[in-house]
Design a protein around this nucleic acid. Sequence first.
RNA 1: GCCCCCGUAGCUCAAUGGAUAGAGCAACGGCCUUCUAAUCCGUAGGUUGCAGGUUCGAAUCCUGCCGGGGGCGCCA
Length: 553
Amino acid sequence: MDPAELAAQLLDVVRAEAAAAGADPESIVPEDVPVERPRDRDHGDWATSAALKLGKRIGRNPREFAQAIAEALASREGIAEASVAGPGFVNIRLEAAAAGALAARILEEGEHYGRGTLFDGVTINLEFVSANPTGPMHLGGARWAAVGDSLARVLDAQGALVTREYYFNDHGAQIDRFARSLVAAHRGEPTPEDGYGGSYILDIAARVEVDYPGDLDALPREQQQETFRELGVGLMFDEIKASLHEFGVDFDVYFHEDSLHESGKVQHAVDRLRELGHIFEADGATWLRTTDFGDDKDRVVIKSDGEGAYISGDLAYYLDKRERGFDRCLIILGADHHGYVQRMMAMCAAFGDTPHVNLEILIGQLVNLVREGEPVRMSKRAGTIVTMEDLVDAVGVDAARYALVRSPIDTSIDIDLDLLAKRTNDNPVFYVQYAHARTRAVARNAAEAGVDRSAFEPALLDHPTETALLGRLADYPRVALQAAELREPHRIARSLEELAGDYHRWYDACRVIPLGEEPIGDVHRTRLALNEATSQVLRNGLGLLGVAAPERM
RNA sequence: GCCCCCGUAGCUCAAUGGAUAGAGCAACGGCCUUCUAAUCCGUAGGUUGCAGGUUCGAAUCCUGCCGGGGGCGCCA
């Protein structure tokens, strides 16, 4: 029996009890009768706080109500025991056979176990990273790469049609500064006041010199800068793409901001908003009346010099995404951009869309670099950045991705490269990966010893570590669903760590391959199924994180 | 000044409004002639920043304060 079946039984029972108390059974919805994993395993396999939640509503004392639920539940098939505890919790213990049957189901469903239908058929555009091509990928970008890619997988597992998109900002003043820095490097001049330092500028400048077929110094200054801009941005972008690919993150669409301006999409978006009556002219500029939609001030869309303001690109980009047919547009932004959320939502509403539904912005906190306990200020311009490549070199792709995806995005995280490089064992990714490698070792040894899966007797899976392991496996689909609902892939990682712990404890207590002269029995064959089911769920979960599930370690 | 995020074990961090707040690392003590000891078992470690409030129940929600980070342009 899995939680969904138990929940159905529970709802049935609670509705009957509610009716007996004179309440309308249909007023009781599944959300009122949660099936939870008790924190303390001694309390049972599952628990519900339904009596506490509903007691007042239907006018019954919670403990008495819980007692009635427990009694009705205990007589149901597959349930070994149901009892009342504390202020009105109902603790439920399943029969071993009912709990153990899950192992067979997981093996049947294979890589589909844990997938859901929350976003069936919904088209989602997930934009993340979108770092400016003015320098290599830094730690912050690496965090969004890890989180964004994992979130895409988590949403996909709920049936969504996800497009991973990178907004490539190749238009505007920052790019100009980048180009001027390259020119300065080329000429051996010092870095311009507002330019970018760092050795990578010298590298890129040198590569532009090699790539350019003609004589750079024969070009007029303006054209020279334009050449450095075009080639330099291209090189930088290729480098970013390569780093991301190395990191296991590939995008479906790399969207160039320049194309918005060149193709008239900015004008199209402004025209559309004008039709809707949200545009006005003042002080020689064109404005969007975002204050009608909750923004604290109106925003300039077209500056008085005729150039589009930054937001004009966002307008055009958002409209373009919607016109490409995406139901939902998700954007992961760093905390340094949180000030844009309000105006972006206002913009979304101005187009007639629903903020936080058609457009959703996830604000992630920053990654701090720490060295010997002291924070190190990272600055692209000063060249004191730690790149994604540095991180990968220090700890490897799996450990890096895992470390970045294992925390909720609204907490800032500290990365100490020296620490990670020295003591890579303190990264829990190895704990989880080791559990998977162990399942494979057991499988290999079982095959050699002649333990097969010709029998499956779930009632034999009655050891406490087996009950615990099965409960965790049963809980996995709920975690996957929750990760998608809350856009929190870190929940997958945390859950896998718990699963790995349950597996290691089971491994320690229950043998798949008999010892010595002991004959192979159905208990061993059945345990092999549990081993394979655990292996499958670990693979599925690590797959959602984009972290490898090794055969050996 | 206003806005957003955070404050939990020595460290890094978890925890749908639920029961005795949990993991990993670090510390200390145990288990390998047995499917991988990167495992497992045990000990120690806490006024969940502070003060109120909401309720059967608060780390979680509300208010105020303290501390840390970030943001508030016709920059991008």
